[in-house]
Design a protein around this nucleic acid. Sequence first.
DNA 1: GTCTATAGCCTGATAGAC
DNA 2: GTCTATCAGGCTATAGAC
Lengths: 184, 184
Amino acid sequence: MRGEQKRRLLMAAAARVLHEQGVERTTIADIAEAAGVPTGNVYYYFKTKDDLVRAALGEHAAHLAALTAELDALPDPRERLKALVASWVGQREVAARYGCPTGTLAVELDKRDDGLDAEAGRVVRLLLDWAAAQFRALGLPDPDGLAITLVGAYQGMSLLANALRDPSVVDREGDRLHRWLDDL
Amino acid sequence: MRGEQKRRLLMAAAARVLHEQGVERTTIADIAEAAGVPTGNVYYYFKTKDDLVRAALGEHAAHLAALTAELDALPDPRERLKALVASWVGQREVAARYGCPTGTLAVELDKRDDGLDAEAGRVVRLLLDWAAAQFRALGLPDPDGLAITLVGAYQGMSLLANALRDPSVVDREGDRLHRWLDDL
DNA sequence: GTCTATAGCCTGATAGAC
DNA sequence: GTCTATCAGGCTATAGAC
């Protein structure tokens, strides 16, 4: 299955390059080059550029699912949430340079009125739902609202770290979120 | 001064259209049409598309300066900050449809390595500096950190409201920020 | 199945008429 | 100063050779 391998290579390259350069500034040739595949050949695996963007969104969703599955191994929901915050802090350099992969993609795709804008929102919702489940397990009131506060803080600190090119924003806000989770 | 008038018309149109459609998906023709100016004529007023983007950033900065100047008329710094939050809530429909003008522009421009990425950060910093000044006037410790928390919450709730197409996110987080400011 | 060459379109920018 | 016509370049996508 050489074909399936190349397809996966292209999906991974698309996820990375689209995050770094943005959707509109990235050409098919950019993704092909990053994957080591001839430019025109990309169309054998993905009919359109939008299909590649969709595949990249799927990659990010899969990555998120893997992360939350890992966190689910922890016994205490509060510890799971704190470990999530810790993983955000661990990605501070990436956040400062390119922003949150899902968040920046959502911002860009939301400027469109084709179907892709809604799909970005679905990936964001995966994280919101998982976080809400943890707050619910802790018996806290308004778990959905708390999830929005937590994920909103993540998106906000990623955006600011990116706009200011300053990873320390993530450190500071990460500490604050840790205390916030402890005090809930 | 017919020329200066048209120039201002183009700047206002650029600020609006670039916010709604994003930088990369907006053509010179789009902005020209929104301003009621013939397409090619735009280049008489702005040498390049990047110049127009810069002008749009300037418009957003001016709008922000006007807002903070208005808030400065309030006697109490805490009331100024709460009025800022209230103005964000008042813009919830726009935030849900197009996101924060400065924030979404910063996300898109940060994907570039020319000079424009840094200029978006400068506009964000205007708001941060003003907020920090209010916290400082209240005698609170770490005013810069508090400003990042406040503006980060704004950017986060705007992004989520936009990605989920749900203005109620802004209402909920606005209420929370109001309580947070009261309890500081 | 894999890749190349190229068509066709759109965009930013310009030259020059008025 | 204002506007039109048009060019050059780069992009997505396809047709068809291997």
